[in-house]
């Protein structure tokens, strides 16, 4: 079944294109320290706001910093923010969803009402409020985004557990006297994993946009460290003098986000037997 899903995924051209985009940006982020580029904070006062040229392929910014170098290092911040915040959301959200779905009753009622309450505040507004109260930094932005994305994983996992817990193999595990913890970890979690993986991939895309939005507002990555969102924040002040400053970070965010969205859609089609 798993290899059939993988074959289906690899036969889907748009999912493959998404995977290629994601792998490209991951490679760029990992290789940043060894690429032959200037440091992202190195300033050249003789090359302020220079258009793309042979010396600076993507041009320079208002402090004469090489935009290619800042883009490459910015990829680290954006990808890390996307992956770490989704990791937080999954690690916190999935256990709550498992417990709510498996035990039901008042535990489910309490967890579900808390999730309803968190979902009633728009994702970005919740993240802005959390980032504002925690203080502006990339780490706090990741925590804020992770906690804001968490309720979706609780709800998704709970729904999946409700569907799985009446299956014969779970009843069987219960009949042979296995404890709740082992049933949840060995029999239920592996069977609800596929939709969580799909949701996690799609949420990385949302989290990358959220990090860029928070950094754009000044609540994420702090200067002089680069992130695509904070680069756009600076760029908006120089739109008529140096439009290239705004062009590259936006294109990069678009490409990496569409990459994760295509990959997520492809994974959903490959793992879901029902298709329209």
């Amino acid at each position: 079944m798993r290899s059939r899903s993988l074959t289906k995924l690899l036969a889907n051209p748009s999912a493959l294109f998404g995977l290629a985009l994601v792998c490209f940006f991951i490679a760029v982020a990992i290789l940043a320290p060894i690429l032959p580029l200037d440091g992202p904070a190195a300033t050249d006062w003789g090359a302020i706001r220079k258009a793309p040229s042979a010396a600076h392929w993507l041009g320079t910014d208002d402090l004469g910093r090489d935009l290619l170098s800042r883009m490459v290092w910015g990829a680290r911040a954006s990808l890390m923010a996307g992956v770490v915040s989704v990791f937080i959301a999954v690690v916190v959200g999935v256990p709550f969803g498992l417990v709510a779905g498996y035990f039901g009753g008042w535990v489910d009622q309490i967890i579900s009402r808390i999730v309803d309450a968190l979902l009633s505040t728009p994702f970005l507004i919740l993240a802005i409020a959390l980032a504002a109260f925690l203080g502006p930094s990339l780490t706090n932005a990741m925590i804020a985004i992770g906690l804001s994305a968490m309720p979706v994983f609780v709800r998704l996992t709970r729904g999946q557990v409700l569907a799985v817990k009446t299956e014969d193999y779970v009843e069987g595990a219960r009949a042979i006297g296995l404890g709740h913890g082992r049933i949840l970890a060995r029999y239920i979690l592996p069977n609800v994993f596929a939709p969580i993986l799909v949701q996690a991939t799609l949420t990385v895309a949302t989290a990358i946009i959220a990090e860029a939005s928070l950094s754009f507002l000044g609540l994420g990555q702090q200067p002089p460290a680069p992130s695509w969102g904070s680069m756009l924040n600076t760029a908006k002040n120089f739109l008529d003098q140096a439009p290239w400053m705004a062009l590259w970070p936006g294109i990069a965010i678009f490409l990496v986000v569409i990459g994760f969205n295509l990959l997520g859609d492809g994974l959903r089609d490959a793992l879901d037997p029902r298709e329209i």
């Binding site: 860029a212 939005s213 739109l239 008529d240 936006g250 969205n261």
Partner: peptide
């Protein structure tokens, strides 16, 4: 549609202003 979901709207705003 997928592109519309993937473009950060603040960047689209900046590009349209430009």
């Amino acid at each position: 549609a997928l592109s519309g979901l993937s473009i950060p709207n603040f960047w689209l705003g900046i590009m349209l202003i430009l």
